[in-house]
Amino acid sequence: MIPSDRLEFAFTTSADCSKIPRVPLADSTLGVHKVSQPQLLTHRIVVPPQPTDSSTGGSQKLPLAAWESLYPAGSISPSSPIKGGFGFYLSGPEAFKAASADAREVIMGYEVMFEESWEWVKGGKLPGIFGGIGNAAYGCSGGRKDERCKCFDLRLMWRANGLGELYAYLPLDPTNTARLLAVPPFSHQNPDYGFSVGRGAWRFTSGKWIKVATRIKMNDVGQENGEVEVYIDGESVIRIEGLVLRDDPASYVQGLHFQTFFGGHSADWASPKDQRAWFTSVSGAVIRDCGRTRDEL
C-alpha cells in the first residue's frame, strides 16, 4: 500500500500496528457525529467472535473490541419499517481532522467481518470516505442531485454472492462518468442513485476479518487529476485516475461515512434472517505531498 514514510497525522484503533498512534474505538475519540436514529440503530461495542476462517487477510491479533451491526430479518434501507445496520459520520481524532482539511491525499479504512453463513441477497452498503464543502458534504447519497459539485461520497457495497464494488457519488461531470464507467469488470450508472463501479473486482467472504481501505487524491482545481483507489487486504483492486472531485479548494476529505444496511429500497433486498457484522481497526492517515496546503492547490 502506502510507504510508511509518506504517512503523517495517522491514527488507528488496531492493536496490530505499532508504528501508528493508537486511539480507543470510541465515539468521542473518533469524532463520531450525525448518528442516524440512535434510539433504533445502535453500534454497540462488543468483543467480536472468533473468525471461522483465519487463513488470509485481516488482523493478526484478534481485536478486543468491535462495533456490532445487527440486520434483522426483513430489514432494508434506513427509511424502511424494519430497520437494520447503523449510520453516522466519523471525522477522526482532532489532530487528524485538522490535518485532513489541508491535505491533498488521504487514506482511511477499517476491518469488517460478516458472520459465518452470511446471506448476501442482492447487496448492501458499507462505509467509505466522504467530503466536500462544509455542511454540503453531508447527505451526498440517496439519489441526491443538487449541489453535487460540492460533495463526494465513496461508500462500498457487497452484492449478490459477495461481489464487491465502489458505490460512488461524485460531482456530475462528463469526465467522471467516462472514468467511472471504464472500470472493469463491470460498472454501471444507476439512473437515480450513485455509480456502481468495478463490481466483481473483489469478493467478500464471511467468517473472516477483511481489511478495507480507500485512498483519495483531490484534483487541483481546474484540472482532471483526482484519484480514487480501493484496497482489500492490502491489495489494490480498483484505481481510477483523471477524476474531478472538486471545483473549489474549500472542498476536502472530511472523514468516513460509516453507514451499513441491506439495500436498495425494495423488499427483495431485505435480509432474510437476523444477521450480524462487526467493524474494527478504524484508521486514517494524511499522505505527505511536498508540504503543500489547501490554499496552494
Rank of each mutant, 00 (worst) to 15 (best):
Leu62Gln: 14
Leu64Asp: 15
Leu64Val: 13
Trp67Gly: 02
Trp67Glu: 09
Glu68Cys: 01
Glu68Asn: 08
Leu70His: 15
Ser75Lys: 09
Ile76Cys: 13
Ile76His: 13
Pro78Cys: 12
Pro81Asp: 12
Ile82His: 02
Ile82Val: 15
Ile82Glu: 07
Ile82Arg: 11
Gly85Asn: 01
Phe86Gln: 11
Phe86Leu: 02
Gly87His: 06
Gly87Lys: 03
Phe88Cys: 15
Phe88Ser: 14
Tyr89His: 07
Leu90Val: 13
Gly92Ile: 05
Phe96Met: 07
Phe96Tyr: 15
Phe96Gln: 05
Ala99Tyr: 00
Ser100Ala: 13
Ala101Asp: 15
Ala103Thr: 10
Glu105Arg: 15
Ile107Asp: 09
Ile107Gln: 12
Tyr110Thr: 11
Val112Asp: 03
Val112Ala: 02
Phe114Arg: 06
Glu115Cys: 01
Glu116Met: 08
Trp120Gln: 00
Trp120Val: 00
Val121Cys: 00
Val121Arg: 08
Lys122Gly: 01
Gly123Asn: 02
Lys125His: 00
Lys125Met: 04
Lys125Tyr: 03
Leu126Cys: 02
Leu126Met: 04
Leu126Arg: 04
Gly128Val: 05
Ile129Asn: 05
Phe130Arg: 08
Gly131Phe: 12
Gly131Pro: 12
Ile133Asp: 13
Asn135Met: 12
Ala137Val: 11
Tyr138Arg: 12
Gly139His: 10
Gly139Thr: 06
Cys140Leu: 01
Cys140Ile: 02
Gly143Phe: 05
Arg144His: 03
Asp146Ser: 15
Asp146Arg: 15
Glu147Arg: 14
Glu147Met: 12
Arg148Cys: 10
Cys149Arg: 15
Cys151His: 00
Cys151Ile: 02
Phe152Gln: 01
Phe152Ala: 09
Phe152Tyr: 10
Leu154Asp: 04
Arg155Tyr: 11
Arg155Ile: 07
Arg155Val: 08
Leu156Ala: 09
Arg159Asn: 10
Arg159His: 12
Arg159Lys: 05
Ala160Thr: 01
Asn161Thr: 07
Asn161Gln: 09
Gly162Ser: 03
Leu163Val: 06
Gly164Pro: 07
Glu165Cys: 00
Leu166Tyr: 03
Tyr167Val: 03
Tyr169Asn: 09
Tyr169Ala: 01
Pro171Gly: 11
Asp173Gln: 09
Asp173Ser: 13
Asp173Phe: 10
Thr175Lys: 11
Asn176Phe: 12
Asn176Gly: 11
Asn176Cys: 13
Ala178Arg: 15
Leu181Arg: 15
Ala182Arg: 04
Ala182Leu: 08
Val183Ile: 06
Pro184Asn: 11
Pro185Arg: 04
Pro185Ala: 09
Pro185His: 01
Pro185Gln: 07
Ser187Arg: 07
Ser187Gly: 00
Ser187Leu: 07
His188Cys: 10
His188Gly: 05
Gln189Leu: 04
Gln189Phe: 13
Asn190Glu: 14
Asn190Gly: 06
Asn190Leu: 11
